[in-house]
Design a protein around this nucleic acid. Structure first.
Lengths: 219, 219
DNA sequence: GCATCTGGACAGTTCTACTATCCGATAGTT
DNA sequence: AACTATCGGATAGTAGAACTGTCCAGATGC
């Protein structure tokens, strides 16, 4: 366990915690108080940290994802679903209660894109809720916005699927799907910040001064 | 305050908490222990909830964003920067410590896209870190992935800027930028899930069965 | 032969975002 | 004018999440 900690930089008590939480499988027992861990454990631990740190998942959600990855012969579409649900583990994706134009806007955008999607895709609820929020805050050109974003989303999805399709074994593919779904969100968000700066420089070549940093003050 | 609570659905103690935390400006005092709140407060409160619930910001980060929105005559690029930093308020965007191919991959992607971006754009660090994580987990076709994502990111950024450009007054534009940056991430993520289902149905028309729901088990 | 290390159990800590209680003052009702 | 309800503010308390620290009996290794 000490080696595992050294190899990954994760403190030993944290590893124990992950074991308790069933994120990490126990090592091969070599005695009543001795166990050995191999490369698979290192890899798994790295995946866990990626899900938690980069993907921002909670421990509970990460456990679901990992359980799914570990389940053999689970169809890829299922893995996709679990990964989607996992990343979608916020208030955003609960059933919609309030009213608003969101659902209709999403339906229209899907129509315009010619997409074929189940009614219970979690993204539908999430997108509808976000659009409701936009509307409540007074944004008006929602159809236009969603179209731009939807085209981008299709590009992303094609890149995702291409990456999965060229993956190796099925269990590798499961991991690829999970990694791609979870890390992809973070990657897109980061690239968006970069692109925003480029495009805004293109449109308004003057006055682009990035902010260094800023701490919150209470009083 | 009771009316404010009724109008927004936010409990009174929570409103008090937001007042304490300087997320919400105090109402117009009509007496030593009486104050009245107007539509601006309702709007602001909705913005706060949007930042916290939909954007997933922490209270501290939300305060920074709101302070920026409230600062008059702040150039738009500054607001963009603050909003970017706010959404980027994770471990992801701290200075890179470890080594990895991330930085180089990001530089190359920016080159290939012909983008013009400052060296200290926070997205650079974030993207580099995500790519490092990908690499550590064994992904190999990183350049290909980042290209697909980068093209999508540019589409998104153009949609963002278009929305901002047609906004009204400067203070409105500040809010538009903030809302767009924060909610946009969530919207893209949701649309991505939808597009993933569509594209995967396109490629593998069989076996697309969405997952209903799943709770984490501890033992 | 003995300090060191291992895994496991369990309690403690830190942080965040609220939530509950109390209080004196005031507004509305009678 | 009396009385109750409510207001805003201050303070303290709570729940959950993610660790982290302490203890202990049993190996390991020089």
């Amino acid at each position: 366990m000490g080696e595992l900690s050294a190899a990954t930089g994760v403190p030993v008590p944290t590893i124990k915690y992950y074991l308790r939480e069933n994120l990490l499988p126990a090592g091969d027992r070599t005695g009543p108080n001795q166990a050995s861990y191999d490369a698979a454990h290192v890899r798994r631990l790295r995946l866990i940290r990626a899900l938690l740190d980069v993907g921002g998942l909670s421990v509970t959600t990460a456990r679901q994802v990992i359980t799914a990855v570990d389940t053999p012969d689970l169809p890829l579409s299922w893995i996709f679903g679990v990964a989607q649900h996992a990343v979608s583990d916020t208030t955003l994706y609960e059933p919609l209660d309030g009213d608003g134009p969101g659902v209709a806007l999403v339906d229209e955008a899907i129509d315009r894109m010619g997409w074929h999607v189940h009614d219970d895709n979690p993204g539908r609820r999430g997108a509808a809720r976000v659009l409701n929020t936009y509307a409540a805050l007074g944004a008006d050109d929602l159809a236009e916005i969603s179209d731009g974003y939807a085209r981008a989303a299709e590009l992303i999805a094609r890149a995702d699927l291409a990456a999965v399709a060229q993956g190796g074994s099925v269990s590798d593919m499961s991991e690829t799907v999970v990694i791609g779904t979870v890390l992809g969100d973070a990657l897109v968000a980061s690239l968006r910040r970069i692109a925003q700066e480029h495009v805004s420089f293109e449109l308004f070549p003057d006055a682009v001064a990035p902010v260094k940093s800023q701490k919150g003050r209470s009083s």
